[in-house]
């Protein structure tokens, strides 16, 4: 996965050709109250609309709401322990080849088109949106954007996230 640095581009042509394609199989998951509420408690966000159906109803919702960014964690697929690398990340988390040493979390952009409710079934599709080599003050780096579209059981897009990775 990680080549020795050379004077070539950090982004091999075969990786550049992946722009616009799915980076993984689509994932489908049900939003459960237990997982949503455990997430809210771990964040420290005890908004009553996540826990109390009367509060959700008073705020105009048909049932319990899931915290806005929970949906990205709800669709995480677990893997067996022997698929975990030394750094703790799952192997295959980044199937594209880059001539870099390290990838960092650069940020994230979210659009929330509709609330996600407990009981929804969400399908997530992640594409490689863009991959650009840039010149930085600490040398060249690669900006990788993965865009995930979250769609509910009615076919409505509920959220879109663009995760930005910085690799150098």
């Amino acid at each position: 996965m990680q080549d020795q640095p050379t004077d070539e581009s950090l982004v091999p042509d075969e990786t550049r050709a992946l722009v616009g394609t799915l980076v993984a199989e689509p994932v489908r998951a049900e939003i459960t109250a237990k997982e949503s509420q455990r997430y809210a408690q771990a964040v420290g966000d005890l908004d009553p609309v996540y826990f109390d159906i009367d509060a959700a109803s008073a705020a105009g919702h048909p049932t319990l709401v899931a915290p806005p960014t929970f949906v990205t964690h709800a669709v995480v697929v677990g893997l067996p322990l022997d698929r975990i690398r030394t750094d703790g990340l799952f192997t295959g988390a980044m199937p594209m080849r880059l001539r870099v040493q390290r990838t960092m979390f650069g940020g994230e952009e979210w659009d929330f088109d509709a609330p996600v409710y407990v009981g929804d079934t969400i399908t997530a599709e992640t594409r490689l949106a863009s991959i650009d080599e840039k010149a930085g003050s600490k040398g060249p780096f690669v900006r990788i954007v993965r865009e995930t579209t979250f769609t509910n059981q009615h076919g409505d897009v509920v959220a879109r996230s663009r995760q930005i990775g910085i690799a150098r």
């Binding site: 609309v49 008073a58 979390f105 650069g106 994230e108 609330p115």
Partner: peptide, 13 residues
Amino acid sequence: GPRARLLSVQWQN
């Protein structure tokens, strides 16, 4: 508040 609707958020690390 509960009757507001969050439309988007962007953050940079």
